[in-house]
């Protein structure tokens, strides 16, 4: 597959993926743009792979998980954390939209790697093996990252239902 074809097919999806793991569309754009520029330089090698998309996704993920974006990620998490604290009290518990927004805010404050694993599973529908490839770790690490993320989200979900229960 040529580079142009790859970009035409996958750019939108890649931007969606990057936005979901970073929770910041501008940061996502920066990362995707830069990764694609780098990928273009060595496309002969990447294009010949079995799964170029998986490889490029790995570049995007590594880039986000690298130290360069540590501070940006922390700032976003703090911002969203604030938001998460306010959502339950303002929202109508019966409102599906509010439910979703509250969940979104909780996902945004997960550790970066856990969120990446979660997005790969629930947005990209990747298998454990594929996630392990993207995150460059073992499958058992993938399973532990995912279960920790789900555990956190579940605890919050219960706490939230309890709070709302008291109020209503």
């Amino acid at each position: 597959m040529g580079f142009d074809q790859f970009v035409a097919d996958r750019l939108d999806r890649l931007l969606g993926y990057a936005t979901a793991i970073t929770c910041d569309k501008h940061l996502a754009q920066d990362i995707v743009q830069n990764v694609l520029m780098r990928a273009q330089g060595k496309w002969e090698r990447i294009g010949a792979m079995d799964a170029p998309y998986l490889y490029v996704k790995r570049m995007v993920t590594n880039d986000y998980l690298s130290w360069r974006h540590r501070r940006a990620a922390r700032e976003i998490a703090v911002e969203r954390g604030e938001l998460a604290r306010h959502v339950p009290s303002m929202a109508d518990p019966a409102d599906a939209h509010a439910e979703r927004e509250a969940m979104r805010a909780r996902i945004a404050i997960l550790p970066r790697k856990q969120r990446a694993a979660l997005v790969l599973r629930f947005y990209e529908d990747c298998s454990d093996a594929e996630i392990a490839q993207v995150l460059a770790c073992t499958e058992s690490t993938v399973r532990s990252q995912l279960s920790r993320a789900l555990q956190t989200l579940r605890t919050h979900e219960l706490a939230r239902s309890a709070t709302l229960g008291v109020h209503s």
């Binding site: 939108d12 743009q33 969940m103 979104r104």
Partner: peptide, 27 residues
């Protein structure tokens, strides 16, 4: 809860910038 997570992540991904902008920058 998994369905809620799926929806929440999809909503986050919806926020992405227009791919045409990125395409133009790449060109």
């Amino acid at each position: 809860m998994n369905e809620l997570i799926r929806q929440a992540i999809a909503a986050e991904a919806e926020e992405r910038v227009d791919s045409r902008t990125v395409m133009a920058n790449l060109h």
